[in-house]
Amino acid sequence: MATPTFEEKLEKLETIVSQLEQGDRPLESALSDFQVGIGLVKDLQATLKDAEDTLAKVMDDDGNLTDLELTND
C-alpha cells in the first residue's frame, strides 16, 4: 500500500473534522477519530515544515545552496 499523499491526508482530516462537527457519533468513535485527526495534523505540519526548509534554500549563480531568510509577515 502506498503512503498517502499530503492532499489525501488533508482530505481525510477534513472528513474527520466534518464528522466530529456533526456531533452525532458515539463518544468512543469520536475519540478514536480525534486521535487519528491529531496524528494527521502532526504529519501534515511536518510535511509543511520540510517544504518550508526546502524552499528556504536557493541556489546562487555558482550552483551553491544558500539559506534564504524567511520573514513572518
Rank of each mutant, 00 (worst) to 15 (best):
L70W: 03
G23M: 10
K57L: 06
N64M: 15
D61A: 03
V36W: 05
L65H: 11
Q19M: 04
L68Y: 10
E52T: 07
D67K: 05
K49E: 12
D50K: 07
K42F: 05
D60M: 00
T71E: 12
T66V: 15
E14F: 02
D53G: 07
D24C: 04
L27E: 03
P26E: 08
A2I: 11
N64H: 15
E52G: 05
G39S: 02
P26N: 15
T71Q: 13
F34W: 07
P4Y: 07
Q22S: 15
N72M: 14
L44Q: 03
S29T: 14
L48Y: 15
L40Y: 00
L70V: 09
T71N: 10
R25Q: 13
V17A: 01
E11Y: 04
L68H: 10
A56I: 12
M59D: 13
E11W: 09
S18E: 01
G37K: 02
V58D: 11
E7M: 11
D50F: 11
I16W: 00
L44R: 04
G63Q: 03
T54D: 15
D60P: 04
T71G: 00
E21P: 05
L40C: 04
E69L: 02
D33E: 03
A2Y: 03
G39R: 04
R25I: 08
L10A: 08
N72G: 00
G63I: 00
S32P: 02
L70Q: 07
T3K: 08
D60V: 00
M59A: 12
D53K: 06
M1D: 04
V41A: 09
V41S: 08
T3P: 06
V41D: 09
E8T: 03
E8R: 06
D33R: 05
G63A: 07
D62A: 13
L13Q: 08
S18P: 05
L55C: 14
D24F: 03
K12P: 05
K42R: 13
L65N: 05
V36Q: 01
